[in-house]
Design a protein around this nucleic acid. Sequence first.
DNA 1: AGCCATCGATACCGCGCGGGTATCGATTCC
DNA 2: GGAATCGATACCCGCGCGGTATCGATGGCT
Lengths: 282, 282
Amino acid sequence: METRELRYFVAVAEELHFGRAARRLGMAQPPLSRAVAQLERRLGVTLLERTSRSVTLTEAGSVLLAEGRAALDAVDAADRRTRRAAVSGTGDPGLVLVTKAGASSELLAKLLDAYAAEPGAVTVDVLLCGIGEQERMLRDGRADVALLHLPFDSTAGLDTEELCTEGQVVVLPAGHPLSTRAEVRLAEVTALPGLPEPRRPRPDGTYPDGPGPQVRDSAQLYQLIALGRASAVLPESARAQLSPGLAVVPVPDAPAVTTVLAWPPHSRSRALAGLVRTATRR
Amino acid sequence: METRELRYFVAVAEELHFGRAARRLGMAQPPLSRAVAQLERRLGVTLLERTSRSVTLTEAGSVLLAEGRAALDAVDAADRRTRRAAVSGTGDPGLVLVTKAGASSELLAKLLDAYAAEPGAVTVDVLLCGIGEQERMLRDGRADVALLHLPFDSTAGLDTEELCTEGQVVVLPAGHPLSTRAEVRLAEVTALPGLPEPRRPRPDGTYPDGPGPQVRDSAQLYQLIALGRASAVLPESARAQLSPGLAVVPVPDAPAVTTVLAWPPHSRSRALAGLVRTATRR
DNA sequence: AGCCATCGATACCGCGCGGGTATCGATTCC
DNA sequence: GGAATCGATACCCGCGCGGTATCGATGGCT
């Protein structure tokens, strides 16, 4: 199976429309139809049910969609990491660390400072991304290592090292009735009247249905809270970047949040190993 | 990057010899040279240092060797799992579970019995493989789920569910001086005179250097112990398949062995989910 | 009911590229 | 110094990929 065929099939499976998929791939529709048909013949499997009005995935087709995406990510990762390895001998970008925009910045700063002091440390680029995008960044080679937050992020398929665990607090608009309390229970803040929990993107980029506002990063989130349109339960370290207009109250019965360092399992990079070592020594 | 190019490069990188690699790939040497050169040009990276007498990997080349193997495994997995998904609608092979030949068979039997009693259970093929091959089997799609034993096996890049934890025992030839003891300490059996620890294959198939005999599976191991040529520290469940000529003594200070069910992280199979559910309910 | 728009499949064509053979140039060993 | 080894180069052929033109089926609109 060639990556070209996989790319074609994934495009069609995502669009469920040969014409659109062909446009996305920058090619004409007929060769795309042929290529997918040929892939099916070679696999001996029907991947798509076509009528002239609709295209749907078969059982096998949805398996190949998931597996094919993973395989294409792996190929992309091979490409990117090879290129990076080549310039790393000559140039600079040693490691790329990805984390959610605006999360636990003091911990990260401490880690980077400690690592920079190590002998043989390389430069670490910090890449900020939206919620739930880190895993993808690691899998397709755009990043080498990530800061994840359990239980929100999934560490499926990654090697991890636990860094710290902290309780959670609720972030409210200043002046909210609960904002003067010493602490609140989780049940009190999950369904606050007029302050719904915001909806965060799922891994595929879509948003779940519901009443709350859609939120892509923490800047949006804080602004919405300050505007009195949302509330959020976040790790304690969110206090650090608290802006005026926001109040914070501990939520002792909320599940603890664990910050972990995560990286793809077969990494053999000395630089990454060094970073992990300094992280564990703290 | 096409999988064909990756396959070619991996072959050359493994053989470090264009002629042999070409023979392995069933093609002539010149087009192979050209294809690898073209890959280097497209990546903008030199992967191999060639003289007319030797071929060596560059830094970037060894990165691409590791990453490329992973990517090729992912593509193979996509192929195999798609084929399997297609026939699973019509035919039988529902899940393939892989475990080390001759390990914790009662636990496995119980799990399979419990799962078979579930509604909607599919048939589970059990695949036995040599030591350290399970991870590969999962990654390239030959198996859907594995029984692994921590801390011996690595669960890097896999989702896992803990099944049970047990102590370890040392297996000795019957009649060995230590075989009558109620228990022994780990230090007493790590360097037994005349009974070295056997050498097990590394993930790449080679064996570490050392004095002990090479061992691929537990049948070989038990035979070697009975012959008085080796000893081994194994989980308690090894008692179950004890043959005459062998003695077993607990080793309380040896690290506990945890048996885990492991599967590739992005599996979306209902059958696998069912198996994991029955495993966790025990 | 009939027409048309939509969409995937088919037919056909041209060229680029992958793979083959022959040969070269460099290095090493006897 | 000659021969053997090994990767690179030169050249050629045929397949396959991608293009355009068109067909056939389906569904909506009047």
